[in-house]
Design a protein around this nucleic acid. Structure first.
Lengths: 262, 262
DNA sequence: GACTTCTCTGCAAGATCATGCGCATTATCA
DNA sequence: TGATAATGCGCATGATCTTGCAGAGAAGTC
């Protein structure tokens, strides 16, 4: 187990219990206590927690989220989804991307797509509008991609920008294509997210776009989440992975959504 | 010479000449041709250039900037400046930060400042308003820091957000303290930047703040740059490094600016 | 069509970094 | 104040990554 995963695990433990003990964590992660100490020291240096004798405690009233520090679960599925979605982006398009691990993979796929590289007339090959800090940060150095970031407040422990400042910026743009990674997709309720602020931004993005593509790995299908993003009718294409069963995707296809399994 | 520096050097060569030859670059950087090939392949993968037989060419009409990919010149000076500036940020303050390598160090120093960690009542210990993508990205995971990002268009090859979207967001906030890293500081002309869009943002940030601190290493003093940010009268404190001579800082002190040499 | 030049791949040497252990020091608790 | 436990530091080991070299293959040239 490498360092970032271990940090992630430690922060997860800490988010759950509010505190951590060195020996306990060492046993849990099957590493030596010295390593845990080092990790805790570094995380304390980063102000992620406060060291105590024998362990550490959460810094503030600890946030509920386990904090996906740098997670990569279902990585290969998401990469395939990313490649499939990236293929739908044509040259010169203005695409909106929301935050999440899936959309991050999509962004990478768009960035490394060779066909988009030969831009005509010096203009950007593709314009990406996003509220995801990590996506913007990753794509910023590519000469052929124009990055537009919504402003707003960074959601704690995450990389998404939210709030009135963000919606204010989105009011002023139009998109050819909105690509939304969602937390849940239900045939009746449509797409939804866990966080209402996020959902609001995503809804606005879908509203501003001529076409809407939803990316959701198979585990998201049929699930419901708290905050609604948009109805099924607003979705033109759903991209999921090959683990999705026929029965799982049938309702969406019947509702007129084009379903792609990557 | 490590990999990021080598990439930086390669991109700098490429930005200057528009193309690169493998053998030539290998000789220049005193590494083997195989290494250059590998580097070029990776950069091509990232869409930073296009590979050709025997070398590579710039991707588009190449941008003028040498592209500070990950540069760290005058690192220790900037770290000292960063620590000094961070000490001026009190608990609960709302501070504005513009982009640049110096302000990035300041942001790191603010983030790792222990005294700010014990936040009272669960509120953020400090609120950072910035148009710098890299700063926002680095600070986003810290629970005790609230990050507000101006929206806008990412300047190609850089990490600063600019344009009307950015100014629109800045219009809606007020700052206790504006911390500006500048490209040039002249006793008569005040602070200035190389890029007019950047200068506009910086000006607005200074305008929105109750107090203005300018951070500029000694090489910036007495220099002039194209786009003016603000007059000397608007500046309350100047933080520079110990390489600045008495004569260099005298005019600023006489003009009523508090000068700190870190 | 042969030759030259460049490229790609596997392999080994080298460096770098993380990890684990032991010991001296320091802090906490009774 | 004394005992116990945790911490910090230094060093050795191990793994991983990077680099350079050499040979095979491919592309371009005359």
């Amino acid at each position: 187990m490498k360092r970032p995963e271990r940090w992630n695990a430690l922060l997860e433990l800490l988010g759950r219990d509010g505190r951590i003990e060195v020996e306990e964590a060492a046993a849990e992660l099957t590493v030596s206590a010295a390593t845990i100490r080092r990790d805790l020291d570094e995380l304390a240096q980063q102000q992620m927690l406060t060291r105590t004798r024998g362990g550490a405690v959460a810094h503030n009233l600890s946030y509920d989220l386990p904090l996906r520090y740098k997670t990569a679960r279902r990585a290969s599925e998401k990469q395939r989804i990313g490649a499939a979605v990236a293929r739908m982006v044509e040259h010169g398009a203005v695409v909106g991307l929301n935050g999440g691990t899936t959309t991050t993979e999509i962004a990478r796929a768009i960035a490394t797509r060779g066909e988009l590289s030969d831009s005509v007339g010096g203009g950007p090959a593709v314009t990406v509008v996003t509220n995801a800090l990590n996506i913007a940060h990753e794509l910023a150095v590519r000469p052929h991609i124009k990055i537009v970031l919504t402003g707003g407040v960074a959601r704690p422990q995450s990389f998404e920008l939210m709030g009135p400042l963000a919606t204010g910026v989105l009011d002023q743009v139009s998109l050819d294509l909105a690509i939304l990674g969602v937390d849940a997709l239900d045939p009746e309720r449509g797409a939804a997210a866990h966080h209402e602020g996020e959902a609001g931004i995503n809804h606005l993005m879908a509203d501003r776009a001529a076409r809407v593509v939803v990316a959701a790995d198979s585990s998201k299908l049929g699930r419901r989440a708290f905050a609604r993003i948009c109805a099924l009718e607003a979705i033109e294409v759903l991209v999921t992975d090959t683990d999705a069963t026929e029965e799982a995707i049938a309702p969406y296809a019947e509702a007129g959504v084009r379903v792609i399994r990557a």
